[in-house]
Each structure stands twice: as C-alpha cells, then as structure tokens.
C-alpha cells in the first residue's frame, strides 16, 4: 500500500509539473468553459424566475465539456514517445497510474471550477451563499464520479482511432445518471430549496462514485496492458 501511494504521488507530481510548464492548456480550457456559460447566457432569455432552474444545467454542461478535454489530455501526454509503455514496464501497480490520472483530472477540473464559479454567480445573478457548503459537497462528489469514470474511459479510448471523438461519445452517455443527480441536487439548492430532494440525490451520487471508483481501480490493469 505504501508503494502504491508513493508511485501515485510520483506520477501525479510529474503530471502537475508538466502541466504547469505548458499552462496554455489550462488557459484554453478555462476560456472554453467561460465561453459556454457566456453563450448560454445569451442563448436563453434569462429572467430572475427561470435563471436558477437553467443555471445548474448550464453549469454542469460547462464542467462536463471542459472536464472531458482535461481527461483526454491526461492520456495524450502519455502517448507522446509512448511513455505509457515506459510506465507499464515499471513494476508500478497499474492502480497507481489510474489513481494518479484520476487525481490529476480531478484537480484540473477543480481549478477550472474555482475560476468559473465566481464569474458564473455574477453572470446568472445567483444567490448561493446560504448553501455554500452543501453546494461544494455536490460539486466535489459530482467531479469525483465524473473523473472516476472518465479516467477509465480515456484509458480505453486512447488506443483507438478517432480518440478525440470517441472519448465524449463513450463517456457522455454513461455520465447521464450522474449529471441528472448532480444538476437535480444543485437546483434543489439554488432553486426549489427542497432539502429532501437534495439528500436523496446526494446518496445516489455517492453510490455512483463508490461503484465507479472501485470498479475502475480494479479494471484499469486490463486496459493499460496491450492485448
């Protein structure tokens, strides 16, 4: 277990280091997420009444798209010079590769969210302060499930032709339940204020997270080893 954590840390730090050196990717993804929320802001006729209702959906779409970009990138860097083969040649447990990629992707999305959400709140004129803690929990657990599944799917699709297209095509349908729960819980907070709704969805999200994180941790070694 200690080795697993050490190698996870080594790979994660390596990824953070290389990502910080080519910051433009983070910048571009942020611009992309920003565009999504700005364009939707114009596309819908937002009124004080419908704004909270639409807002949570739009927010999750922005995160979904930018998160998917980040996930796909996380394995792209390993394809350069076939580093992924170099990684699989090391005695490192494959689960460490999965955990490192998962954590890296999670961190990436959280950074985007920290930058986007304040702008979003202003743009959509939302009152989130009273539920700030509960909102953060939903975001984090939603991100967790998204990345648990997304990291697995990215590892599958990185060896396929047309991977840029296949990742979203494979991943988005599988994420539908998570998005429904997360957007539902978000709108329970900022719109209806129905806390029963919130907690019932929260439970579903946690179940999703646990299932996909466990399954992916176990399955990952069969995916990175070439057939």
């Amino acid at each position: 277990m200690r080795e697993l954590i050490t190698s996870t840390k080594a790979i994660l730090f390596k990824d953070i280091k290389t990502e910080l050196r080519s910051r433009e990717f983070l910048g571009n993804t942020f611009m992309f997420a920003l565009l999504v929320i700005v364009i939707f802001n114009f596309a819908f006729k937002l009124t004080p009444e419908n704004s909270p209702e639409l807002a949570s959906g739009i927010l999750w779409i922005a995160f979904l798209f930018s998160g998917t970009l980040g996930i796909s990138r996380s394995f792209q860097v390993e394809k350069e010079n076939e580093c992924i083969q170099g990684l699989t040649l090391t005695p490192v447990d494959r689960t460490a590769i999965y955990w490192a990629k998962f954590l890296g992707n999670l961190l990436f999305l959280i950074v985007i969210q920290v930058l986007i959400i304040p702008i979003f709140i202003v743009l959509y004129n939302l009152n989130v302060m009273e539920h700030f803690g509960l909102m953060t929990i939903i975001l984090f657990l939603g991100d967790f499930g998204f990345m648990a599944l997304g990291t697995l799917i990215a590892a599958i699709s990185v060896n396929l032709k047309a991977k840029e297209l296949l990742l979203p095509v494979l991943l988005l349908p599988l994420l539908v339940p998570l998005i429904i729960f997360a957007a539902g819980a978000t709108s329970a907070l900022i719109d209806s204020g129905n806390m029963d709704d919130y907690y019932s969805r929260l439970k579903l999200i946690i179940a999703f997270d646990v299932v996909f994180f466990t399954v992916s941790s176990l399955l990952f070694e069969y995916i990175v080893d070439e057939p």
């Binding site: 390596k14 280091k17 290389t18 050196r21 080519s22 860097v77 350069e80 010079n81 076939e82 580093c83 083969q85 170099g86 040649l89």
Partner: peptide, 14 residues
C-alpha cells in the same frame, strides 16, 4: 527488466 525500444519513453516536458 530494462528496455530500449523504437520509442524513447521520455517526457518532452521534463
């Protein structure tokens, strides 16, 4: 086991 292949397995950004 140590391997040198056609690919370098090196990270360009490191």
């Amino acid at each position: 086991v140590g391997v040198i292949s056609h690919n370098s397995f090196l990270y360009n950004q490191l």
